[in-house]
């Protein structure tokens, strides 16, 4: 995994990297002038998936904990926002709804509470048990959203319309695009800053050897809980944006396979890099756009690509770019070695 990538570059390339980053952002800022409604929407989808997957990378890539319930904060934030904006019949929610500027902090607060609670319970376990209990929490969320038809709209989903904030009409696709662009960029930079901070280094230490981190005096439970809540918070931002983008919030957002998408994107892109999430998101959406309609059953192609990545490129596309990868021969070697061991 490519943490500590910065050391590979000297000061000259540092300038180049800044230049590259600013160039990419400028390019994205220009896009809605060129692309139409559909293309712009696609890029919005890319940003939201990027944010969702990057927040998941904080858990899997930096801290080394595999959650199968990342859909929970994503969906909870979307529903909390939707319920208060649309003024659904829930005690304490005004019937007329509240403005989005008030609803978003409420949604994020809800995510913090839910993530802290589920994390506090789930982090007592580790490994497979942790993965399964987080999956269970997300499914509990799914069934609650599915069954409480009165508040959430159940299977039909919860319809919301993009309001106007501070005289800024979000209904306009270009305006909405810029809002998403700046929010996702801000979140991405915040996450990047976090991973470079002493806190982020402790997370990497936990990933590499949790016992040693404990012996060094770190209360690893607290660190894991903190990153679980932070990752949930960013996933929540992604959830709110996704709800606003689609104008509808459905129980599918809480289904465990939504969290599985984050896993897929992070793995294909490259774990432990954050920017790998961008590569993976572009890959997933690009594959969908290219293959839908051309190849029947395109998810099979995606599944095969994914399996090949696990076998041959465990460090993802980001790993390929910075030069970590296993060759086909390594894997065949593993196979043969397995047989030789077995014959002994």
């Amino acid at each position: 995994m490519a943490v500590g990538l910065g050391r590979r570059f000297d000061d000259n390339t540092r300038v180049m990297r800044w230049g590259l980053a600013i160039g990419v952002v400028a390019l994205f800022a220009l896009l809605p002038q060129v692309l139409g409604n559909y293309g712009t929407g696609l890029v919005v989808e890319f940003f939201v998936l990027l944010l969702f997957a990057a927040s998941y990378d904080l858990l899997i890539g930096y801290t080394g904990i595999i959650s199968f319930g990342h859909a929970l904060p994503y969906g909870v934030a979307a529903y909390a926002m939707g319920i208060v904006v649309a003024g659904r019949p829930l005690p304490g929610v005004p019937e007329a709804g509240v403005p989005l500027l008030v609803a978003t902090p409420i949604a994020l607060l809800a995510v913090i509470v839910v993530s802290a609670l589920t994390g506090w319970l789930a982090l007592r376990l580790s490994g497979v048990y942790f993965a399964m209990i987080t999956l269970a929490f997300s499914m509990v969320g799914y069934f609650v959203a599915f069954e409480s038809t009165g508040v959430t709209g159940g299977d039909n989903g919860l319809l919301i319309s993009r309001p106007e904030i501070l005289g800024y009409p979000l209904n306009d696709y270009v305006a909405f695009y810029y809002l998403v662009l700046w929010i996702v960029l801000g979140c991405f930079l915040a996450m990047r800053r976090l991973t470079c901070s002493p806190f982020g280094r402790v997370l990497v230490c936990i990933r590499e050897n949790e016992e040693r981190a404990r012996f060094l005096g770190y209360d690893t439970f607290r660190y894991k809980l903190a990153v679980f809540v932070v990752a949930g918070l960013f996933a929540g931002v992604a959830g709110v944006l996704q709800g606003l983008y689609l104008n509808i919030i459905t129980p599918d957002m809480l289904y465990w396979s939504t969290g599985g998408d984050a896993l897929l994107v992070t793995l294909i892109g490259g774990m432990g890099t954050l920017w790998g999430a961008a590569v993976g998101a572009a890959f997933l959406l690009g594959a969908r756009e290219l293959l839908t309609g051309i190849v029947e059953g395109w998810p099979i192609v995606l599944g095969v690509v994914y399996v090949l990545f696990v076998l041959f490129v465990p460090d993802g596309i980001a790993g390929l770019i910075v030069g970590h990868s296993r060759s086909v021969w390594d894997v065949i070697g593993d196979l043969q070695q397995g047989d030789v061991e077995a014959e002994d």
Binding site: V128, A131, L267, I300, G303, Y306, V307, V310
Partner: peptide
């Protein structure tokens, strides 16, 4: 990686 792999196989 085994979890990830079998997840991919399930998709296929």
């Amino acid at each position: 990686y085994q979890i990830l792999l079998t997840f991919g196989i399930a998709l296929i």
